[in-house]
Design a protein around this nucleic acid. Structure first.
Length: 291
DNA sequence: CATCACACCTGAGTGC
DNA sequence: TGCACTCAGGTGTGAT
């Protein structure tokens, strides 16, 4: 499911609901995700207060008040959503199929007292390609899942020069290189196709053959497509929803993804969008205006 | 090393 | 309606 804009949208939604609440109960219904949920997961989290929620690449990071960080990934089909009872003590919806972990949270600890009777957050993942593991905040950069990640595409240190250096010498297609989370962190199958279209670069070009100028253009295109997607709340293909259940709308703004056979949206271009398979993933592009 | 095919798992969609 | 088949937003592995 989720690439950077979807994970960032969920992250922001969760932060608004969870920061400043205490985890009063954590129930793990299935441990066998892509990596097993640690046996002491629930015990380690119970009683902790959520300090902050952030994102690195496609990982969600939930910082707790004891130096523990929950490191989460949604894989292809994972969802995290908030369930809030409409009234204090009102019954929450029953746990559904593929709800693997349920976090029960207290009312906000600080601030004006209110009728908020707490809420719960559900981790749901039919395919179980996602994961939920634990890290240590003060040593998070060394965490095995995070230490090899490349630059954040929306950060100022992701430049054309950095991209050029990270793909130097690579003979694989630029499409495949951009999916490599060590080259740039957070892109997935949709946004790679969309960014290459905006940069007018063919996905079949050898990554190392891009000029410095092309790398600079590609960096700009990556930023623009991610920012546009963030503004739309991400893309909803089949099951992605934001933390509060709202759906994203960027799928309506795709220019090439899943548009095989349609006219190239670039003004005056007579090309037709083509679908090819690279590294076992579908790639969409206009063979006329992407060179 | 770099590259690639494939596996992991479930559900949705399609065509017969 | 049912069945067989294909495809899907990700990533780690083993073979080459």
């Amino acid at each position: 499911m989720p690439e950077l804009p979807e994970v960032e949208t969920i992250c922001r939604g969760l932060a608004g609901h969870l920061v400043g609440r205490r985890l009063i109960e954590v129930s793990v219904r299935r441990h066998d995700l892509r990596q097993p949920i640690p046996a002491d997961f629930a015990q380690k989290l119970t009683g902790r207060v959520v300090l902050e929620i952030s994102r690195r690449a496609k990982y969600l990071l939930m910082y707790l008040d004891d130096d523990t960080v929950v490191v989460g990934h949604l894989g292809m089909s994972g969802r995290l959503f908030v369930q809030k009872p409409p009234l204090p003590s009102a019954a929450l919806p029953p746990t559904g199929a593929h709800d693997h972990v349920v976090f029960h949270l207290s009312a906000p600890i600080a601030g004006p007292s209110q009728s908020d009777g707490g809420l719960r957050v559900v981790y749901n993942d039919p395919r179980r390609f996602g994961l939920l593991v634990l890290g240590v905040a003060s040593a998070l950069k060394k965490h095995p899942l995070l230490r090899e990640l490349g630059p954040e595409p929306l950060s100022p240190n992701f430049t054309g020069a950095v991209l050029a250096a990270n793909v130097a010498g690579r003979r694989s297609p630029i499409k495949a290189a951009l999916l490599d989370q060590g080259v740039v962190a957070g892109l997935g199958n949709i946004y790679v196709s969309e960014a290459l279209f905006r940069a007018r670069i063919s996905p079949e070009r050898a990554a190392g053959s891009l000029t410095r100028a092309e790398c600079g253009q590609l960096v700009k295109s990556i930023r623009s497509v991610l920012e546009d997607a963030l503004a739309a709340g991400g893309s909803t293909l089949r099951d992605y929803v934001q933390a509060d259940g709202a759906v994203g709308s960027f799928q309506n703004l795709f220019r090439v993804y899943d548009r095989e056979g349609q006219r190239c949206p670039r003004r005056g271009c007579p090309g037709l969008i083509r679908r090819v398979v690279q590294a076992a993933r579908a790639t969409y592009f206009c063979p006329l205006c992407q060179r």
